[in-house]
């Protein structure tokens, strides 16, 4: 079954997010509590938008959210957003909840309310300014890698069963030969922590590990296809 994103809130942030999700071809569902925003979502073409009173528990019961889905909380009202996060966490404790906050106090509250990830608008931007001041070129390039669809980009991929990479050491694999660079990975044997390749210790690759690589889009695609082969 395909993962779904449930977007709570179609205000300032919600609207742009809905567009981005659409562009990424993610199956998404917009949910709003204000009639005005609800109408706007319908007008913008999100015909499956739901109008829900987020303060009433019974309205959540018929939401069909499964464990693999994502919940995004971006209500315009900060208090409502925290309340919503808390309610959703109570109803769907295993679902990943991502919330956007616009102050350090709200971030803390959202985390306490059960959000798995909180993106603090201003915190992120403030860091960005520091990065620009310290390393302008690197920041610009990284931005490009992240936001561009074509050209050089970052991608994560899972090593499939019986791949030629299975049971190999990182140092023995010629990523350069494929035109890609390995940035980091999640080694399932070592838990769910992201390990940067520059830590300096060589890891054994296994099927099921997740690799994050950087490279030209076509090279990344070629490499991903290549991973299914059993010989290099």
């Amino acid at each position: 079954m395909k993962k779904k994103a449930f977007l709570f809130g179609y205000g300032g942030d919600g609207r742009t997010l809905a567009q981005s999700l659409k562009a990424e071809k993610m199956h998404s569902q917009v949910i709003e509590s204000s009639e005005e925003n609800y109408n706007r979502a319908i007008e913008d073409g999100y015909t499956n938008t739901l109008l829900v009173d987020v303060t009433k528990d019974e309205d959540f019961e018929h939401l069909d959210i499964s464990e693999d889905d994502y919940i995004i909380c971006v209500m315009d009202d900060e208090h409502l957003n925290v309340f919503l996060t808390l309610t959703l966490h109570a109803f769907f404790p295993k679902v990943t909840i991502i919330a956007i906050s616009d102050s350090i106090h709200a971030s803390q509250k959202l985390k306490m309310a059960g959000a798995s990830r909180v993106i603090d608008l201003y915190q992120v931007s403030a860091n960005r300014i520091h990065n620009i001041l310290k390393k302008p070129v690197a920041t610009k390039l990284l931005d490009d890698f992240l936001s561009r669809d074509d050209g050089i980009t970052l991608r994560e991929m899972i090593i499939p069963d019986k791949s030629f990479l299975d049971a190999k050491m990182v140092d023995d694999v010629d990523f350069q030969g494929f035109g890609v660079l390995l940035v980091g990975m999640i080694d399932v044997e070592l838990g769910q922590k992201f390990i940067f390749v520059t830590y300096g210790t060589s890891h054994k690759l296994d099927s099921g590990d997740t690799l994050v690589c950087i490279g030209e889009k076509k090279d990344l695609e070629k490499f991903e296809a290549h991973m299914y082969r059993s010989e290099a």
Partner: peptide, 20 residues
């Protein structure tokens, strides 16, 4: 600098490529 856009990119990354 566009705070909304930065947050947007991060959110999409969080959903589409959670490891990254």
């Amino acid at each position: 600098l566009m705070p909304n856009e930065v947050a947007n990119t991060m959110l999409i990354t969080a959903i589409m490529q959670p490891v990254m």
